[in-house]
Simulated scan of single mutants.
Amino acid sequence: MTGNPLLQHLEHLFQHYGYGVIGVTIMLESMGIPLPAETLLISAALYCAATHKMNITWVATAAIIGAIMGDNFGYLIGRWLGYPLLERKGGRVGLTAGRLQAGRFLFRRYGGIIVCLGRFVAILRVFVALLAGANRMPWPRFIVYNALGGICWAGGYAYAAYYLGHRITRISGPAGMTLAACGAVVALGGVLFLRRHERRLTAEVEAAARREMEQSQQEGRT
């Protein structure tokens, strides 16, 4: 076994829990529980490339199944709870009043596109299914967009990370280390960018929602 501590940790994790830990982690995150599902998926794909002790096809399959199942459970939870309870309890899992308001506006404006593309945005991925259910999005429509987004996100990330890791393992010496470091910096930069600009984006969506509401009220008076 390699002396790399990260690979040792991943090997211990996957030897004990197999592909199931990938599917379950992604499922729970999709239900609205903030977990590092994306990090685990990418790590599993890189582990496949570095050790060949897991099959990337099964990693992608477990991730896709977990994503689709979790989103459907999240949808049912959001539909059952509705906005009143989400407004009272959502803050416990990071679903703040601002995010609820932003989600309502985005679903009203873009609908199924948010379900599909929201998987690629860390902020939306955790809450998109809950918001879809709370907004009473038709379930058949949700299933179609959810499946499309889950396949593209889970399958795309898994295979992209796998082939990137495969390329890195073929490059030895300083060049390989430099390429790996650059990839890590880019990934970290993306996470920091989203966190830094979340408040600004939420404020812009909230402002747009208020303008739309005010416009509707003015039209109702006339």
Rank of each mutant, 00 (worst) to 15 (best):
W58P: 10
G82E: 13
Q217D: 13
I113N: 08
S216W: 05
L86P: 04
V24L: 05
V126I: 15
R79P: 00
G20N: 02
F73V: 06
C116Y: 03
A60Q: 05
Q15R: 14
L7I: 15
F120A: 14
R141N: 08
E219C: 02
R79C: 01
A49N: 07
E212A: 15
L46V: 14
V121C: 07
H52T: 10
Y47F: 15
R119P: 11
L201Q: 07
A160N: 10
F14H: 02
P34V: 05
I123R: 13
A60K: 03
K53C: 03
R119C: 13
A97I: 11
L124F: 15
G91H: 15
S30N: 09
R210S: 13
H9G: 15
N55G: 12
R195F: 11
I68H: 02
A147N: 07
A45M: 13
V59W: 01
T178Y: 10
L81P: 00
Y75Q: 02
P174A: 10
H12G: 12
H52A: 13
G112C: 10
R136V: 08
V24K: 01
L130H: 03
G155K: 02
A63H: 04
A60D: 09
A207R: 15
I64N: 02
A63L: 12
R200Y: 11
M31G: 00
I33N: 02
Y110Q: 11
R211S: 12
L41Y: 01
Y19Q: 11
E212F: 13
G176H: 03
